[in-house]
Write a protein that binds this DNA or RNA. Structure first.
Lengths: 155, 155
DNA sequence: CAGAATAATGCATAAATATGCATTTATTTG
DNA sequence: CAAATAAATGCATATTTATGCATTATTCTG
């Protein structure tokens, strides 16, 4: 069961990469991401995300979240690749997530995290083979650790 | 009794000068301009005018008629990025342009094309790794293919 | 001009979305 | 830990929007 934050994040991606013209369609797309949600929940999510509607060619109206969603997606994909390649272990203590990398690779990971601009990340510090990731106030360290573990393909 | 053209002109003005969050509200505003119309008519008018919804401060969604030029520009930039990232091959047959993408990425490209609202594109159909782009009557398929190739950075 | 064809509109209702209320889940507190 | 509090969610339905079909109005044609 995805958390609300995770679900809304996925919604943002889906809207950026699909022409979603109805909430039912969005529910279907979420289900494909193994996220179950009802129309009521989706309606509220869209409201909270500040969704708008735009016209696509053919004239139908689709949902959109303003603010360069596609960029975010691209960076997320890039981040996933980098994490998948270089992160070998994830640990967490309170609001600090420790990412272990091969020697000399920490800065690559830190850079990708910085450019991803994750709301959940307050900042990063890179050593030689370790990246300290500080979770933002709105995100619990363990949740962030789990998120980064998944992006790293570690679970 | 205002003509359709006149009524739609007034609607455009009303949307520009008021935060109209429902069609019923719009009907009331029209009545104040001595224009009678039912919800069905207003719904159709908004559709024909290519209305969208935007968020105003306070978070409510209101109707708006977009100003095409700047939107077009923004989406073109977005389109260029998406095509550059995901399109690996462009083919053309008569008025159909075929875009080849990595598996699973076709819908991303199709969505971006939809949003770009190119006059030269009549519509798109996305498979798994292929997007079929139908050129509009006013554009030759090979011209569109070349245009999309350039946007994709393929030549 | 009358009749045919086309466009516009309203009625009724289907479809889509928002929301009140209750329940469930998550978080906080002692 | 249990209880209290807050947040999230679903159910049911109210509200809003879209649309099928029939009617009306307008335009076109001979």
């Amino acid at each position: 069961m995805a958390s609300k934050r995770q679900r809304q994040h996925v919604i943002t991606q889906l809207l950026a990469n699909n022409s979603v013209s109805s909430q039912e369609q969005l529910i279907t797309l979420l289900k494909e991401e193994d996220i179950e949600a009802t129309q009521a929940t989706v309606s509220r999510d869209l409201d909270e995300l500040g969704s708008v509607t735009v016209r696509v060619s053919g004239g139908i109206m689709v949902y959109a979240i303003p603010e360069l969603p596609s960029d975010h997606y691209v960076h997320q994909d890039h981040l996933k690749r980098v994490l998948g390649e270089w992160v070998v272990k994830v640990g967490v203590s309170r609001n600090i997530v420790m990412l272990q990398t091969p020697p000399g690779s920490a800065h690559v990971v830190a850079s990708a995290l910085d450019r991803a601009g994750l709301e959940t990340v307050l900042g990063t510090v890179a050593g030689d083979d370790t990246v300290m990731v500080v979770a933002s106030e709105t995100c619990d360290g363990s949740v962030l650790a789990e998120s980064l573990s998944q992006l790293s393909g570690l679970e």
